[in-house]
Write a protein that binds this DNA or RNA. Structure first.
Lengths: 210, 210
DNA sequence: TAGCAGTATCGACCAACGGTCGATAGAAGC
DNA sequence: GCTTCTATCGACCGTTGGTCGATACTGCTA
């Protein structure tokens, strides 16, 4: 039997199902057939919309990055929040965990997903660095922060935030997190060249961690 | 025809060939058959020594990490080098590029190798953090460095060094490198809490970069 | 030297995978 | 009712990672 749908809708269906599967089972361990079964289409249909399994992965990553960047852009524009806070909040808003289910949170960063991770990180850094450029420069102008390499500082803090809290790089235990977060904030302060302790209030923002 | 070799020798043969292939072609794009052809053994032999292709990958990563750690341990013990320099040299000695052919250097960090990368990073951090613990604590005692979170500082600088210079995370152009290295050194100084410019002499150590 | 035991080797075989392609059903326009 | 175009189908393909029973080689014992 054949059910016909408008192109963009089918595409989204495939993307949504694939995203769920890639994230929960891992990219490698999700077969095209797995996706096919759930979306309930034939192989030909899948390859009518995407040239390869990898192309689907790339499209999904662009989606995720774009969602994060949009959250960040809203935060950065919000004049009601102190400037430095906006920057840190925008960085933290990248953590895809902030929305979405708890299972995703747990499964997202296994070794199986290394490829997804890697592509995500590259795309996120590219997209986000310009977003944070302006507020950081303003921080410097206002004397809240002092640094010689603003672009690199943003890149570094974004990278650190991701590696430390999104990907379980260090395999920390639950009880180590408070200390690790404080260390992260301390390092961020030093790199940004803010007053000492300026960022310490962000500790609570992390809430309960993975 | 059947050529019999002692177990450990066969194992090493497989490991060496696999390492070369994984690094140049990528883990995903290297088939077990590729390895078989070069080592000139049958499939059964391969699976006699390793339970899976992935187990080979893990063994290779342990090798690479161990090599780096040994280089670091030698450097750290070398009293003829100033303390702070030893620390930075040990970190830089992790870059597998420092030895091995140029082709490897170019191919090592493509997206295809995300899995290798990811496993490497985790293992390297675990192995290297204790190695640097002692000299960093000594730095603090001697007043060369000032920090509240020495362990986390080591972890962070190791991570940054790897992500920035080993994996092409940011996709920098050739001409951007000097600036990026200076920024890295500046951030390391600030995190370690050394005198400003203390590490700037390391710029030249990076030599020509990928 | 004959026999034996243990180990290293072999390659045919398997299910599952990502991907291809020609056939065709359904909707839209004339 | 005919044509056109697009979305859909599923049989098929080569390759992959992995299994397994058969067997050749080695070193030991009698």
């Amino acid at each position: 039997m054949k059910t016909v749908k408008e192109g963009e809708i089918r595409r989204r269906e495939i993307l949504d199902v694939a995203r769920e599967l890639f994230v929960t089972k891992g990219y490698d361990h999700t077969s095209v057939n797995d996706i096919l079964k759930i979306v309930d289409i034939a192989k030909g249909t899948f390859y009518y919309y995407f040239a390869s399994k990898e192309e689907v992965l790339e499209a999904i990553i662009l989606d995720i990055v774009e969602e994060g960047a949009r959250r960040a852009e809203i935060i950065v524009k919000d004049q009601s929040i102190p400037l430095l806070n906006r920057i840190m909040m925008a960085i933290m808003a990248q953590t895809p965990e902030f929305e979405g289910s708890e299972e995703i949170k747990e499964e997202l960063h296994k070794v199986e997903n290394a490829k997804l991770e890697r592509l995500y990180l590259k795309a996120m850094l590219k997209r986000m660095t310009p977003v944070l450029q302006e507020p950081v420069l303003e921080c410097i102008k206002e004397g809240i922060a002092h640094m010689e390499y603003p672009t690199e500082c943003i890149e570094t803090i974004l990278l650190l935030g991701h590696m430390m809290f999104d990907c379980d790089t260090f395999e920390w235990k639950m009880e180590e997190y408070p200390q690790k977060i404080q260390a992260f904030l301390c390092h961020a302060e030093r790199m940004l060249g803010t007053k000492e302790g300026e960022l310490s209030g962000f500790l609570q923002m992390f809430g309960q961690m993975p």
